[in-house]
Structure formats: structure tokens, C-alpha cells
Design a protein around this nucleic acid. Structure first.
Length: 505
DNA sequence: AAAAAAG
């Protein structure tokens, strides 16, 4: 294992990291830090939860020097306020043994504290575009000496919704600068666009070509859903034995609010994060979830990217996301830093085409999702969901909240099972990671986490071979992006469920 | 089309 010290990181930063128990560098860090330190422009791509923040953050801190003069010298732009808080905390930790100070600049909060910290001479700014531009317009944020610039979740920052703001921000920073763009997903066209803001970037992909596109630590389970059953099924998943924290994603703010109310009515300890909430309430939810006071977080895609919470064991897509990038980022809230996790997705009938798209783009190679709930006892089995009374929400018993402590959870699960139909045999211990034995063939078909080694890598290697594990091409010349999304032509009309079947079926 | 991001 390579340590941060091995990579040429200053001792005080190494000390700051080791105070948090962090000594060994992850692959993306191993590859980008030695290049970032001397000022190489980098497009850094690595899977969710594999340490990208330190990959760009450490070079930023070190390049400013041990005792930089007051004033903004580094700018890190992120897509959401919660991510700004999180990256701020990471940067603050990295600078804990030196005089460099960091400030988080984002909306929904009082200006005062942020302005005070800028006036006090903060050197590193982490922020969201709106407030950054706002303060820059008010001449309270001078970006003209920000020679270190980072776009975190870079593909998101460069998509249509954000691009005008990002262009504006780039027009305010020095032309001669060090620019780093990081994300788990970097579609080819975005990479091309990104070059406009960089000089001779190296595109680093810290991925093993044999691994496939998704995190090997995450098991992916997909079910066709009946909307009336969904809340009930989700409530049962939340009783899963050994469940840690769970993040549930909805498509709309309203759906998120409805679900959090429903789950709290049922006795769960859930919080929500979405754009219709006050910033204060958003931060309360996040803090409660991180601290373990709440073990369920219901969110819109505001929380899909970057958010890093320890011990999230389950991600549930209450509604399937629109594209494979969002799917990958959402699922990536679990299975972080080498841990395992489970991603469960419910696909409504009218959304089967979205599953087809994701299935294909992420090379799951799965057939149609299996029927949910009432007709599928396998669902209970594989997720360790106590199989209670079948039926719709209206007739189902209220679910009891289950504490996260394993013993109690086991008790509650056993109790719940007694109400049910004695399906003990069906329940099995969940082993994330995909190596566990399967329950039934129907279910197997929907299980996408464990891919037979080799099966899918052969064709993928053709595309990626030259890139290899950890290779990069110098001089700003790069291979075509190739991945992740081989764009499907156009979705076919009609043929109802056929969309999810593998091509040719 | 939704969500996010200034107020």
C-alpha cells in the first residue's frame, strides 16, 4: 500500500490525515496527487466512494504553501449546498495543522458569517455557483487570485443547468491557473467541453477494466413496482436484519415529503432533504442522519452526488432515475471506502424503458425486472424482509420502527415474522458483495451485483483495453471516452415490457 | 421533465 507520505505529501497534512486514521492512499489519490502537486491539469475519474476529494484537495492545500498570504487563492465549486459543507469539512481537516483557512460559500444561509470569513482572509473557498457569483458581483469575493480551481462533480457542473454559471466563474479567475475536474462519470462530450477550461489536461481513470462500470461492492436489485405497494415494501425493507443507514431517492420533492411523512407516521426515524425545505431543515436532516439520530434519509437527487455518510447499507430508488449517471451516483451513496452495500430499485410500469437504458449502459446484462411484492416472496427473502401479511398498504399492519442495533433488529424481525406466514426458511442472511448464495432463479435474474467474471469484460476490454488500469495518456491527448454510455438509438415505442430484455431477446 | 443553484 502506498501511503500519503510516499506520495510526497507534506508532513503536517500527513499528520492531519492520520489523526483521522487515514494513512494509505486509494488508487485515484495515488495517481492524481503526484501529478496535481506540480500543477498538472487533471480530469480525474474514479468510482463513487473511492476518495476523489483528497485526490484534488491535498494538492490544492499543499500548493498554496504552508503559510499563504490572506485572500482567496483556491476555489472549489460543487453542485449542492450539502456537498459544499462536506467538502469544506474535508478541506478544513487537511489544513488543520497550518494557517490556511477555508470558507464555505453557499445559498440559503446568512451572508454575514461567510463575508466575515472572506474579510478575515480565507484562502480556500468551497461553494455553490449562485452564491459565489452573488458575492463576486457584490465585490465581496475576489476571484482574481484564485490560481487553484476545482470542479467537483464536474460533469454535473458542466451540464446545461450549470454551464452559464461555470463560464461566468471561469471568466473571473486567472487565465494561468491550475485546474482540476473530478467526477465518477465523465461522458465524452463533457470531456471535450471541459478542455475549454483547461490546459493540456491528463485524463486519469482509476478503474480496473475488469471490474465493470459499477462498484463491485454494491449489489444491485431491481423490481417492477406497483405504486400502491411501494410504501409498504419500503417499510419492510427498512426492517431488514442488520440494516444500517438507508437513503431513499424519489423523483420529486413532493414525493420525498410524502414518503418521509408516511414513514415517520409508521414509527420510523426518517429525515428528508429536498429543495423545498429551508436550508436549516436540510442541514438538520443531514446532521441527524450522519450522527445516526435518524437512520433513514429520503432525498431528491440533491443528495445523489458526493454525499459521504458512513455505514449506509441500503440505497432505495423509490423511483428509478432518468439516466445511468444518476443511477450510478445514487447507488454510490452506499458501498463507500471499501464497504459493501445494496441498491434496490423499483421500476414503475411506465418507466421500464428507463431500466432498459440503465441496464444497457451499465452493462448489467439483466432481463426484465421481476414482479414486486405481492407476487414475489423472493423479495422478502433476499432482503431479509420479514414476510408479514401480504396485501396493500390499506390492509397491511402498521410497521414497527426497528432500531439499528443488531440484537434488537433481529428480535423485531423475528417478532414480525411470527405475524406472518412462517417463512423462516426463506429468509437468509444478506451478504452484500454478490457472492452469497441465491434464493431462487426468478430472483437471480434480477440480481445484477455479481457478474460472472470475464463474461462482460471481454467486450468491454475491447473498448477500454488501451486505457488499462490506472493508465493515463500524457500531453492532453486521450482516448475517446468510450464509456459509460453507449448511447442507445432511440427508444422504441410499444412492445410494453420488452425494453428491458437483453438485445436480441 | 425534474432538480439544483441567489433572494
Amino acid at each position: 500500500m502506498t501511503t500519503f507520505a510516499d506520495l510526497g505529501v507534506d508532513q503536517d497534512i500527513v499528520d492531519a490525515l492520520s489523526a483521522k486514521g487515514i494513512v494509505d492512499a486509494f488508487p485515484i489519490q495515488e495517481q492524481t496527487i503526484p501529478l496535481g502537486l506540480p500543477g498538472q491539469d487533471i480530469i480525474g475519474q474514479a468510482k463513487t466512494g473511492t476518495g476523489k476529494t483528497f485526490g484534488f484537495g491535498i494538492p490544492v492545500v499543499q500548493r498554496l504553501g504552508a503559510d499563504p498570504a490572506p485572500g482567496v487563492k483556491a476555489l472549489i465549486v460543487v453542485p449542492t449546498r450539502e456537498l459544499a459543507v462536506q467538502v469544506y469539512e474535508d478541506m478544513d481537516m487537511l489544513t488543520s495543522n497550518r494557517s490556511t483557512s477555508v470558507v464555505a460559500i453557499y445559498g440559503g444561509k446568512a451572508y454575514e458569517g461567510q463575508i466575515d470569513q472572506l474579510k478575515a482572509g480565507a484562502q480556500i473557498v468551497v461553494g455553490t455557483p449562485g452564491r459565489l457569483i452573488d458575492l463576486n458581483n457584490q465585490r465581496l469575493l475576489d476571484l482574481s487570485h484564485a490560481t487553484e480551481v476545482v470542479l467537483d462533480e464536474a460533469d454535473k457542473m458542466l451540464d446545461l443547468g450549470f454551464l452559464p454559471d461555470i463560464e461566468k466563474i471561469f471568466s473571473k479567475v486567472p487565465a494561468v491557473r491550475h485546474t482540476q475536474l473530478f467526477s465518477a462519470t465523465m461522458p465524452g462530450p463533457i470531456v471535450a467541453l471541459a478542455r475549454r477550461f483547461m490546459s493540456n489536461p491528463i485524463h486519469i481513470r482509476a478503474t480496473d477494466p475488469d471490474e465493470g462500470l459499477t462498484q463491485a461492492n454494491i449489489r444491485h436489485l431491481v423490481y417492477r413496482a406497483h405504486s400502491l405497494d411501494k410504501d409498504e415494501v419500503i417499510a419492510r425493507i427498512l426492517q431488514a436484519e442488520g440494516r444500517g443507514k438507508t437513503v431513499i431517492f424519489t423523483r420529486t420533492k413532493r414525493a420525498a415529503q410524502k414518503l418521509v411523512d408516511e414513514l415517520n407516521d409508521r414509527g420510523f426515524n426518517a429525515g428528508a432533504v429536498h429543495g423545498d425545505m429551508s436550508q436549516e431543515a436540510r442541514e438538520r436532516s443531514m446532521a441527524g442522519f450522519k450522527a445516526g439520530k435518524k437512520d433513514v434519509l429520503i432525498a431528491t437527487d440533491v443528495a445523489a452526488r458526493g454525499i459521504d455518510v458512513d455505514d449506509v447499507t441500503h440505497v432505495i430508488n423509490h423511483t428509478i432515475p432518468d439516466d445511468e449517471k444518476t443511477y450510478l451516483h445514487r447507488a454510490g451513496r452506499t458501498g463507500r471506502a471499501g464497504k459493501t452495500g445494496i441498491a434496490v430499485t423499483f421500476v414503475d410500469w411506465e418507466d421500464l424503458h428507463k431500466w432498459a437504458l440503465i441496464n444497457r449502459a451499465l452493462e448489467f446484462g439483466q432481463p426484465e425486472p421481476v414482479e414486486t411484492y405481492s407476487s414475489s416472496p423472493h423479495l422478502y427473502s433476499d432482503l431479509d424482509i420479514p414476510a408479514g401479511t401480504k396485501g396493500r398498504i390499506a390492509t397491511a399492519p402498521k410497521t414497527q420502527a426497528v432500531r439499528v442495533q443488531p440484537e434488537k433488529a433481529a428480535d423485531a424481525a423475528a417478532a414480525a415474522e411470527n405475524d406472518g406466514q412462517g417463512t423462516t426458511r426463506r429468509r437468509r442472511r444478506r451478504r452484500s458483495g454478490g457472492s452469497a448464495e441465491r434464493v431462487g432463479s426468478t430472483f437471480e435474474a434480477a440480481e445484477a451485483g455479481a457478474k460472472p467474471a470475464g463474461e462482460q469484460s471481454a467486450q468491454a476490454d475491447g473498448e477500454r483495453g488501451a486505457e488499462g488500469a490506472g493508465t493515463h495518456d500524457g500531453g492532453g491527448k486521450e482516448h475517446h471516452d468510450g464509456r459509460p454510455a453507449p448511447r442507445r438509438r432511440r427508444r422504441r415505442r410499444g412492445g410494453a415490457g420488452g425494453g428491458a430484455a437483453p438485445a436480441g431477446a
